[in-house]
Design a protein around this nucleic acid. Structure first.
Lengths: 130, 130
DNA sequence: CTCATAATTGATAATCATTCTCATTTTATA
DNA sequence: TATAAAATGAGAATGATTATCAATTATGAG
């Protein structure tokens, strides 16, 4: 993997943003720093970095994938109402992997947990913006 | 929800198939029993039935969604090599929900766990067909 | 430093899965 | 049985992502 300015900017933008952006949202932010960047370049680099384990691709949230610079063991919660994505940490989860591997004989190299429901704000009726 | 022959056939076809088909695959099977069925009808009904809880839509496996007639608590494993989807049952999983709800104050109404890796056959080098 | 090769880019076309539209048909019910 | 609501089939439209390809940029050997 050779150096590229675009990749650097994509990675740093993803890091600076606390959220879990979709490619589309990320693109709109990137355009400000790098007006000529192509959407294809963005997707290419997100896929590359996800493959190398530099970032994480989150599927199953919405029709579009979200991307996460946090590669530590954690999961996600999407609020059905405000559509915000929250990080969830769990120390129970790793047990599932060990147990499942033992029971099935499968080699699990990754897994993901996606929760959905209402976040605290929406649950309490305190509506916030998306 | 009114009765429709097409919905009945979609549901029974999904039940008869042990696998976790994509809409595309299901469509190819359906065509034999109901040659004039429209792809739109299939998607419409799959979504409807998933909403009613009659079936389950599985995302995060591949780019296309898979559908499952098994609505009992269980999870899925997709083999990176043969792409087959396996059921995984876990009694550890429910704990995660309780714990997460307590810690976050969120109202979790659904969650999904997707494992990926190599199934036993592929892991052992016994290559089988997709 | 300079060339050759490989990697990367931007622009845009193409693809894939899914949803939408709408005129027609079917179902439920008063 | 008439009527309203629900469902259908066909195909157009959409949204997200990937593929193509010529031009640009990075890298490494000499």
């Amino acid at each position: 993997m050779n150096y590229s300015r675009q990749r650097e900017i994509i990675y740093s933008t993803l890091k600076e943003n606390v959220v879990h952006p979709t490619a589309e949202y990320l693109y709109s932010v990137l355009k400000e720093k790098e007006p000529n960047i192509s959407l294809a370049t963005l997707y290419r680099n997100l896929n590359q970095m996800a493959e190398k384990g530099l970032i994480k691709k989150i599927d199953g949230l919405e029709s579009a994938s979200h991307y996460d610079h946090n590669t530590h063991e954690h999961y996600h919660f999407i609020c059905k109402k405000c559509k915000r994505v929250f990080d969830i940490s769990s120390d129970v989860a790793p047990q599932i992997v060990v147990k499942t591997e033992k029971e099935t004989g499968f080699e699990i190299d990754s897994y993901d947990i996606v929760f959905s429901g209402l976040c605290k704000d929406c649950f309490e009726g305190i509506k916030e913006d998306k």
